[in-house]
Design a protein around this nucleic acid. Structure first.
Lengths: 268, 268
DNA sequence: TGGCTTGTATCATAATATGATACGCAGCAT
DNA sequence: ATGCTGCGTATCATATTATGATACAAGCCA
């Protein structure tokens, strides 16, 4: 397979990254052969690359079971990321206040292609584990944050997103009908906030307001997750939305440089 | 340079990782030549490897300035890490309660060689930015968490650590005298908790209690950071320590498998 | 014991990464 | 304008480097 580009593309490195990517929610530690399977590399390659990653401190290896798992270095990557993302530093203090004020879980989400990524999470109430850890990537169309952001896009782009961006069923309540999703975004565009219900977890309501750059285009959102058992839509609009909007507006100052996440040249 | 081991060590991959490691607090986005400088690789290598990382989505590249920076993928690494670390899932709920209860910043720290790593952070009060983000790595000897953990080690090992583990001055108040550090750890061993003051940030007090495995050996700690302006040592011992200990004890159930972070064979 | 799977080690081969070099394009000072 | 310098990009012949088939060892189950 000559695959991608040519020179100035180092296959070995790419394969090593494949190994790293083989770890996820349901594959938290793997034997050599599992790794080989999941990464699609042959045994020898896996052996060499995994060993390298181990020696370099990217993978821990249980001396007894010989299984690999992510090392602390994976957390340090997040640490480095935070410093590099100008938004985080700006937003964090306001998010903390907001979280204290609301007493509910508050998140910061950024757009990443057609998904959103939770960049910062401040869990308050007891909450689902997955809802308390950063780096989670979800289809933008299925999240309040994604919809809030899309609401700030020009209509044409918005339509295109609604038609082509991915949607995956996570709960029985996940909206798969793109027309409905479009409506939701339309409403977000008019009201300046988005509410979604039970899209990822049943009985979980997401509320989000967009953080916009100087061009009025959103690239992030302040999001809040509450339980449908204790909150009604009216109460949310009355007590949460205003504070969310204040926070988002406080954060959206002079973010001229919207993160230039452009696909590498022609590829992908 | 034949350097490390031999076959079954893939140099290109290692070099790629070097590039990733070149990013830190003070180097958040870099041009090609900066990257080359900081990683010690020649221009061509840097070019090829950085390009590969970009194509693979590990580095974003600003199309205008041509500078590289960490991509969202770096956060997803943290996401994967969390699932792989059994401690986090166990601890998170208790930490959230604790944080709500205390109204102060609560952290979960793990031992990583002679350093500690903040694995989870729940910022409450307005706090230093660095104190609110995960993955931070600090010399164990200079932190309350590290000292609390060391307190659970057998005396011989403890002594060895006090003598050989690294210490770096971060504030004028950082304790550099190893005898004093030894005393502090001694006290931690007896009392079951450690308090440190102004080690990393002036006027910041750290309190920590160890999370121990079945063998009585600590591998993590619950930590709390408070301001010296509003807290006295007495108040801390009276109001914070008991709750910290409760939390730590609640978390330390049957953690038989203490994280086998062993140095790769003979190397390093 | 024998057959299975999984981790580890070895080795000849050529494919792959290498890094020197050259080009184009900025910005900047003259 | 002109020439200089620094930077990102592209090219190419070379041999260093990664490759993956194979063989060996160790544990596990029947």
């Amino acid at each position: 397979m000559k695959t991608k580009q040519d020179t100035l593309y180092v296959g070995s490195l790419a394969k090593g990254l494949q190994l790293l990517r083989a770890f996820d929610e349901s594959h938290t530690e793997m034997s050599l052969s599992e790794l080989a399977q999941r990464s699609g590399l042959d045994k020898s390659a896996t052996q060499r690359l995994a060993n390298t990653l181990h020696v370099e401190g990217m993978l821990d290896k249980d001396p007894a079971t010989r299984r690999f798992r992510p090392s602390h270095a994976w957390l340090q990557m997040a640490y480095a990321y935070y410093w590099s993302d100008p938004l985080v530093g700006q937003a964090m203090p306001k998010l903390i206040s907001l979280s204290q004020d609301l007493g509910e879980t508050v998140n910061l989400a950024e757009l990443s292609g057609d998904h959103i990524v939770y960049v910062s999470r401040l869990p308050c109430k007891r909450t689902q584990f997955a809802a308390s850890i950063i780096g989670r990537r979800l289809p933008a169309l299925s999240t309040s944050a994604g919809r809030a952001m899309l609401g700030s896009f020009p209509p044409e782009e918005r339509r295109n997103a609604v038609e082509t961006w991915p949607v995956i069923r996570h709960t029985p309540a996940t909206t798969l009908d793109r027309a409905q999703i479009g409506d939701s975004i339309e409403r977000a565009a008019q009201q300046g906030f988005a509410i979604s219900e039970g899209q990822m977890i049943l009985k979980e309501i997401g509320v989000a307001t967009p953080i916009t750059g100087h061009d009025g285009r959103a690239f992030a959102a302040v999001q809040c997750s509450v339980s449908a058992h204790t909150w009604t839509r009216e109460a949310i609009e009355r007590e949460i939305i205003p504070k969310l909007q204040d926070a988002a507006n406080a954060i959206s100052p002079a973010f001229q440089a919207n993160r230039g996440t452009v696909a590498p040249d022609g590829a992908r």
